[in-house]
């Protein structure tokens, strides 16, 4: 208990403009509300019924007035529409320099994977000033990733990747909420976003990352699951070589083309027959139910590391551990 707050903390590159728009909306709507309330109260008193015999003259209407109070709300609405649409596109479009991280929603927790292999649950550590792009998916029902201090929110869907991004501007600790009702412990699917100084973030990132980068884990899986047997790098396997595929256009049967993005790669692992690459037999087994969402992200991360214009192939685990993961991530992030 304490005093009543009116605004959540403002800690991202978009939160200022969202707040400005909010104030604009509050001002405009308060003006019209007070105008209507004032008129109603004024007329309720001024023209109150004085005797039961009162019979006021009829006033049928006024075309000019109708036009005025149709046009004004419409025009004001269009200003709101335009400004808010502009903000929406800003909130939804990740900038070029964004580094990627992965989030998986699961009843009732958030699992975060950093590209260097660091994993956390219900916590997300990010450096201040750096744009972060989160690729998200769900293992079960629909969740929604909401950080009020950043004014961003995006639903997290099973069977699909969605993206949200933010550039934190203030060091601190901020609420992370699930905002799509997801069952019994929905209100327990909460966590904290820690915005840190870049140096602190680097220190945090280096601590205890254990089993190698995401791409390295993906490569290990790629071999364990037997993918490498057919998807040989020399192109002579029963499946197409996957070197340089991620982020490239892929030719399907009957001449159709599809961009090999995360969505396509995911589908081709889980249900390979859906969009078969031209010239190959549909002999790959279905991996639906055999790999978890986390593992899928690792596999995709590996494929991206050997994908189009890859600069730091994860196939060379010799990449010095001291190298700042953020820089590596930035370079790789640009790869796709």
């Amino acid at each position: 208990m304490g005093s009543i707050p009116f605004l959540p903390p403002s800690a991202s590159s978009v939160s200022g403009e969202v707040d400005a728009f909010y104030f604009f909306m509050v001002a405009v709507t308060a003006f019209f509300s007070l105008l209507v309330f004032g008129l109603v109260v004024f007329m309720a008193v001024k023209y109150r019924r004085k005797s039961d015999q009162d019979q006021p003259r009829a006033i049928l209407g006024s075309v000019p007035l109708e036009i005025v109070w149709t046009a004004i709300p419409f025009l004001i609405g269009m200003v709101m529409f335009g400004w808010s649409a502009k903000i929406f596109f800003t909130i939804m479009t990740p900038p070029e320099d964004a580094i990627e991280m992965y989030a998986t929603g699961k009843q009732w927790m958030w699992k975060i994977q950093h590209r260097n292999g660091k994993r956390e649950i219900n916590e997300l550590h990010v450096p201040v000033g750096q744009a972060i792009k989160l690729k998200m998916t769900s293992e079960d029902v629909i969740h929604s990733f909401f950080v009020p201090a950043f004014r961003t929110k995006m639903d997290v869907l099973p069977g699909r990747y969605t993206t949200t991004w933010f550039r934190p501007t203030k060091v601190g600790k901020y609420h992370l909420f699930c905002t799509e009702y997801c069952g019994t412990k929905h209100s327990g699917m909460i966590g904290w976003v820690y915005v840190m100084q870049p140096e602190d973030y680097q220190k945090w990132l280096q601590g205890d990352s254990g089993e190698g980068t995401l791409a390295q884990r993906g490569e290990k899986l790629f071999n364990e699951l037997g993918c490498a047997n057919c998807h040989r790098t020399d192109g002579k396997g029963r499946g197409p070589s996957l070197v340089g595929v991620a982020g490239e256009m892929v030719e399907l049967e009957r001449g159709a083309k599809v961009l090999a993005d995360e969505e396509y790669l995911r589908e081709s692992i889980l249900n390979p027959q859906a969009k078969l690459v031209a010239g190959y037999q549909g002999i790959m087994p279905v991996f639906q139910g055999l790999v978890s969402e986390d593992q899928l992200l690792q596999l995709i991360e590996y494929l991206k590391s050997i994908g189009k214009t890859q600069k730091a192939p994860a196939a060379k685990p010799a990449a010095p551990a001291s190298r700042t993961a953020a820089t590596a991530a930035t370079v790789q992030g640009k790869g796709l």
Partner: peptide
């Protein structure tokens, strides 16, 4: 009279939610 007042507030706050950039923050709150 109550209807005019409350419906006005209800309707105008609907505009906040029709506004895409603001609805991102307010959706499901």
């Amino acid at each position: 009279y109550g209807f005019i007042g409350l419906f006005t507030i209800g309707g105008l706050t609907g505009l906040f939610l029709s506004a895409m950039g603001l609805d991102v923050h307010m959706h499901d709150t």
